[in-house]
């Protein structure tokens, strides 16, 4: 279970203090609801370890995550954009999610190829991110997140700006991910995303 208790954060030279407390179980999705500037992205950055909280705790399966750097936390983030390394091809981008030195076994390489087939991107291994559409880029990023196999997925407006078809495909992938027992933390302005994906709502 992901447990956030009394987590507070304040940006330097500002008065506003954000406080967060919630819990999410395996196979659940919590949607964070609030207007722009209410702290949705801040919360995701705190969970990912990109920001350091003033106080409070983040626990996963009773292990304290606060002191862990981003690379040691059991999380994967998916942002609205800039999820891929622009100078590396699709296969390398995905492979780096599995092993940061790209030391992949044959099984892992096959998993990438099968994964690309499953997201409708057969033969895209050597394509560069710049050659892909917004939806295709998000599918690659999501595939990397799935293959990375971390238990918590942080989603910051992941479907914003995509066409209807791409949104449907990605929602289906996320639901599969959730059904596999992963925890989803979703920040989205879109009511339909929240309705389809979320089991809980956190109002900020």
């Amino acid at each position: 279970m992901l447990e956030v208790k009394g987590l507070t954060f304040r940006y330097p030279e500002t008065e506003t203090i954000w406080r967060f407390t919630f819990g999410v179980d395996h196979g659940e999705c919590i949607a964070i609801n609030g207007p722009s500037g209410s702290g949705k992205s801040t919360l995701l950055n705190l969970l990912a370890g990109f920001l350091t909280p003033e106080s409070g705790t983040i626990r996963w399966e009773n292990r304290l995550l606060n002191e862990l750097p981003p690379w040691e936390r059991p999380v994967t983030s998916l942002f609205q954009e800039h999820n891929l390394f622009e100078h590396l091809d699709v296969q390398t981008n995905i492979g780096l999610g599995i092993h940061p030195g790209l030391k992949l076994t044959r099984t892992q390489k096959e998993a990438i190829s099968h994964g690309l087939v499953s997201v409708g991107m057969t033969g895209f291994e050597r394509r560069m991110p710049g050659d892909l559409s917004g939806g295709q880029r998000q599918r690659v990023a999501l595939l990397r997140a799935l293959l990375r196999d971390q238990p918590i997925l942080l989603l910051d407006e992941p479907l914003t700006g995509l066409d209807a078809e791409a949104r449907t495909q990605l929602r289906a992938l996320l639901l599969r991910h959730k059904a596999a027992g992963k925890v989803l933390v979703l920040a989205s302005h879109d009511q339909e995303d929240r309705k389809i994906l979320a089991d809980k709502l956190l109002n900020l």
């Binding site: 990912a48 370890g49 990109f50 750097p69 981003p70 690379w71 936390r73 999380v75 994967t76 983030s77 800039h82 999820n83 891929l84 390394f85 780096l96 999610g97 940061p100 990375r148």
Partner: peptide, 9 residues
């Protein structure tokens, strides 16, 4: 941030 999360250090 992406690199940090993936352990590209």
């Amino acid at each position: 941030r992406q690199a940090d999360q993936l352990g590209l250090r």
